[in-house]
Amino acid sequence: SQPLAGRQAAELQSKVVPSKQILHSDNMEMEPETMETKSVTEYFSKLHMGSLVYSCTGKRKG
C-alpha cells in the first residue's frame, strides 16, 4: 500500500547515513622507507684506487 511503501522508503533513506568508517586507514599515505647505502665507488675512491677503477676501458694490462 502507498503509506506503507512511503514509510519503507523513508526508513530506507534513513539507513543511508554514512559512517566515517568508509575512510579508514586503508588510504593513509605513508612516507617512503629509507635504506642504508654502501658503494663500491666510494670505497675505492677512499683507497685512492680511482686509477684502477676509472681507467678500465675493457682490456686490462697484465
Binding site: K15, V16, V17, P18, S19, K20, Q21, I22, H24
Partner: peptide
C-alpha cells in the same frame, strides 16, 4: 566497514 551502514543508528556509536 560499509556494512555498518546497514545497522540502525542506535546500534552504532559514533554515528553521524
Amino acid at each position: 566497514n560499509m556494512e555498518l551502514m546497514k545497522l540502525t543508528p542506535e546500534k552504532v556509536p559514533n554515528w553521524n
